[in-house]
Design a protein around this nucleic acid. Structure first.
Lengths: 200, 200
DNA sequence: CTCTTAGATAAGCACGCGCTTAGATTATAA
DNA sequence: TTATAATCTAAGCGCGTGCTTATCTAAGAG
């Protein structure tokens, strides 16, 4: 586990509402252009209401980033089917991951594009979670190569591409015909099989 | 042409240096977290030195975004080889586009992730340029389908994926084995052929 | 019913923000 | 050389920033 066990997201109801309000504000205007007063205003609270829950604006961003990346990792792990063949496992993971990125596109935008605002220690925890998520995909790619299901000259490169495709969803979603989760995850499942050269 | 002809990038040397300094600052800290004083400090100039060239911080961002997207469009158009077959055309375009995204990853980061800070009129101009760039790729995809070189059930989706892959480079680059432009563009050329189901 | 405590508010501090103005300096060209 | 314009700096304005402090409120424990 890359993340230290002492990183805990406040379970208080008010803190959770603040994270949600901050996600919307950060996604719309960017972290640096969002003021703590704007976040409070979304909840009809005073500007000081954040501070009993988070000791700084950066700390709030960190809580959002940690929760989000831990959530994404869990989603990917639960989508994996250890007893199935690599083709089934890959499509299951990518379907679910792409769907999550679409359904949580505002959250995803914040936790993937605003990481430079984190202090180094916090940043390192987040990149650890991200590495764990990539590892799940990489293992399935390697497995498919070993079993002969996939034809891949560069496993690292293809894994990079698979993650890159999914992570970039939050930049353009929603657009075109892909607002429905099913349309999107079917497209991405197909794309993933093409990338690994699966016979289908 | 989507962009109005009256959008002109200042050709003054000082203005160009300011754009470069701003790109580095915005890429590192984000638009909202970057101050006009920081940009000036990078050039050893006074905080007011920007204003003879750009009437606001937003105007400077717009100049950067316009120049960058116009540049990218030009690169893609020049990489296209109208007389060649679709396979050659696609790999040429993607090679060059991916390479540009890597070599200009700081610039790309700014012009792709900070667009929400633009006022609506400026934003519309930029999305027009982006649409033109996508169009170049889409036409080649359609051509390859028509000629039988490509096997693609969803041309819009595959075009989206091709653009998405390239645009996302600025988020992770440089990392892994892909710091060299050649390694990267070879990977992306291969990925693009896999995505369109080309026989190779 | 009182004590404790978590969570909210009102008020405001010190500071840095984008941007303006007035004037000095430099480059251009007649 | 001198007029003209472009571009810089010094100084600073008005305001909004993240955050702090002191105080109040409400809910739960004994």
């Amino acid at each position: 586990m890359s993340a230290p066990e002492n990183t805990v997201i406040s379970s208080s109801k008010a803190a959770a509402r603040m994270r949600e309000a901050a996600i919307e504000a950060f996604a719309e205007n960017g972290y640096g252009s969002t003021t703590t007063r704007q976040i409070a205003a979304r909840l009809d609270m005073s500007p000081a209401a954040m501070y009993p829950h988070y000791k700084s604006k950066e700390d709030l961003l960190y809580a959002i980033a940690y929760e989000g990346h831990a959530f994404a990792l869990q989603v990917v792990r639960e989508a994996d089917l250890p007893d199935a063949d690599a083709t089934t496992r890959l499509t299951s993971i990518i379907r679910r991951f792409a769907q999550w990125q679409a359904e949580n596109h505002r959250r995803a935008r914040v936790i993937q594009y605003e990481l430079t605002a984190l202090e180094p220690g916090h940043y390192r925890v987040i990149t650890g979670l991200r590495r764990d998520t990539t590892r799940v995909v990489r293992d399935v790619v390697d497995l498919g190569i070993a079993s002969g299901e996939f034809t891949v000259p560069d496993a690292e490169g293809v894994t990079l591409a698979l993650m890159s495709l999914c992570v970039d969803i939050c930049r353009w979603y929603p657009a075109g015909r892909y607002h429905e989760p099913d349309t999107l995850s079917s497209l991405y499942a197909d794309l993933s099989l093409r990338l690994v050269g699966a016979v289908h």
